[in-house]
Design a protein around this nucleic acid. Sequence first.
DNA 1: GCTCACCGAGCGGAACTCGATCATGGGAGT
DNA 2: ACTCCCATGATCGAGTTCCGCTCGGTGAGC
Lengths: 217, 217
Amino acid sequence: MSLSDLFDGDPFVPAQQARIEPIQQRSTARLSGLLDAAAIVVDEVGFDRITTAMVAERAGASIGTVYRYYPDRVAVLQALRERTVLRFRNRFAEQLKTSAPKHWSEAVDVAITAFVDLYRSEPGFRIMHFSDRQGVPVAEDPDTGYFARRVAGMMVEAFGLHGGDELSFRLEVAVEMGDSILSRAFRSDPQGDERFIEECRAVTHDYLAGYYGPSVR
Amino acid sequence: MSLSDLFDGDPFVPAQQARIEPIQQRSTARLSGLLDAAAIVVDEVGFDRITTAMVAERAGASIGTVYRYYPDRVAVLQALRERTVLRFRNRFAEQLKTSAPKHWSEAVDVAITAFVDLYRSEPGFRIMHFSDRQGVPVAEDPDTGYFARRVAGMMVEAFGLHGGDELSFRLEVAVEMGDSILSRAFRSDPQGDERFIEECRAVTHDYLAGYYGPSVR
DNA sequence: GCTCACCGAGCGGAACTCGATCATGGGAGT
DNA sequence: ACTCCCATGATCGAGTTCCGCTCGGTGAGC
């Protein structure tokens, strides 16, 4: 999983990955069961060793059922990615509510903490971000940075900062940097190398603080 | 291709990827021809859509020839990655010689420029870094950051700075950050979004300058 | 002429299809 | 309300296609 995913598409509305939308009740359970299985298999055998047969067996389904919902193998992984992004957003929003940060820098920490938590608890999270850099061909949407602009709006609203294009840009860069450092933190340590995690917080704060000026540090 | 690759293994000594070392002259041309073909195909169809048949056809060779030199499909991509890393190193070293920087920050700029040049000119460069994050299984070498330490040594030698573990760590973080921002710069723009490239330079400089103190800015 | 390089039909396995079969749940009939 | 019926969605899994990879035979270098 990569934080840069947050800039693709409309947040809180998962992309249409399934071949045919499920109608009956049981099939939504099937669908999430398939993704659960995919996450576990990805953790076990790695990203490119995964086979549709493994996913099907792990989910207690047949091959045909997998293709009932997904056009091909990579679509399954993309859907898993979508779902995990959604889970991050939900967790972030939730923890923003409970912690009610008074300052934007606290919100940054909340985001990092949520991300780290998912790295540690969510199956497949560590592995998944390998897929993301190959430009997702879905809907040539030039509205990259949508989520960043959204966050910018949140910041402006919540903390009375001045927003605009420059803020969007800065936030996108900050997210990109933070993602790469966290990814490094978990590359060889399942619990995450604390040194890198701390540096991620520091770098992100400093970078954004530099924009707002040292007064907000 | 990812800058983080620079931390793997011994620089300037490409890993033994080929199944059997070629002996006759023509075969070395074949070998590089195969990698050229692989680079082009990767650019055309993406990283996981690539097939050995495509590579063979594009290189004007047969399937068997591919497997004459590489044990399997991923080995071809790894070899391509190796070669591109080597090319980056060569270009970086070369441009370091010609520009003869007096200050470490100029060396950083040289590295970034070399990287950007390869992004623009080297086929497959934009796509290739997808493979790297899944732990390379070759030789469980805990000596991650080897290249960073090497660069640290260069810095100490060339610019009289104090090195050590902290510098290695900082350099690794800087490389990771810079890579992610450059990757973003080229994600949707084949020529690279100048805004992100400039920000990459700024961020890297600021981050490292913060370590050495504002005096060197 | 001896070895290295190359070829490409063929093998095994994984991705993916499709018609048969089962399950569901909305509504007709009572 | 309650049951039962059946249209339609969901599932299955044997079969097909495609792809990674092997290997014995043929051609090119030294």
